[in-house]
Computed example of a mutant assay.
Amino acid sequence: MNYDHVLLPSGVASTPDEADEYLAGQQGLAETEVVAELAAVLNRRNGELPEADTFLGTESVGGAATGAVLQVSCPYDAIGFVRNLLFEIATPREYAVYDPQLAWLIDPAGRVDITVTHGGAGEFPYVTKALLDLWIPALVDPNPYLIAERADQVYIQTYRDPVGVYTIEYRDGSPDRHFGTTADDPSEVVALIWAWATGAKLADTDWKRIEFEPEQRR
């Protein structure tokens, strides 16, 4: 059984239902030049590997009458690698990555290029307001956290506890510039992380400096 990702043009859908409708509408249409180019890159990269290390769930991708859409299947143990590769080749071509299993539409429109670690799904190369609106309310055990990192020692993170309270912390270059607060409302958490990501002033909430033990000051 394989795991599917779908590449589709940025902006053609804003919800999973719209994405599914767009995919259905592309069936039977001639493959576009961009899709052929994306498929060629994936097939070449896959073909460069020993057979035991290949990452496609099919012999090749592309060459089908799917219009501006490209479906990419992979084994479950290659999900992280394939997703990172799709971002690498799709984002510069203004293509979104749709994960139908999670019902996540990851569109680069309006993105901020920072490293984001989602506790349940791994790393992503950018964040958008729409992704924060999707991810933050749905953080659940066993890894209910999200970290957005601009540089070493420059990040913001949140953790949702079992009763739904969020701890939000940000570090501005060193342990001496590490502050935290809490919130019950996920929309407040989204607003804080998005403000930080875009370089806007953080809301005047109850930020407290967090003190670390000497052995933790790294």
Rank of each mutant, 00 (worst) to 15 (best):
A78I: 00
A78Y: 08
A78R: 15
A78P: 00
A78D: 12
I79Q: 13
I79K: 12
G80W: 02
F81K: 13
V82N: 02
V82E: 06
V82C: 08
R83E: 11
N84A: 15
N84L: 10
L85W: 02
L85D: 04
L86C: 06
F87W: 12
I89R: 01
I89V: 12
I89K: 01
I89F: 01
I89P: 02
A90M: 00
A90F: 08
T91V: 15
T91G: 01
P92F: 08
R93V: 02
R93P: 01
E94D: 14
E94Q: 12
E94S: 14
Y95P: 01
Y95Q: 00
Y98T: 06
Y98P: 05
Y98N: 08
D99C: 12
D99I: 12
D99V: 11
D99G: 07
P100L: 04
P100H: 07
Q101H: 14
Q101P: 01
Q101R: 13
L102I: 10
L102T: 10
A103D: 14
A103M: 13
W104P: 03
W104G: 03
L105W: 07
I106F: 11
I106S: 14
D107P: 08
P108W: 06
P108Q: 04
P108D: 10
A109S: 15
R111D: 09
R111C: 09
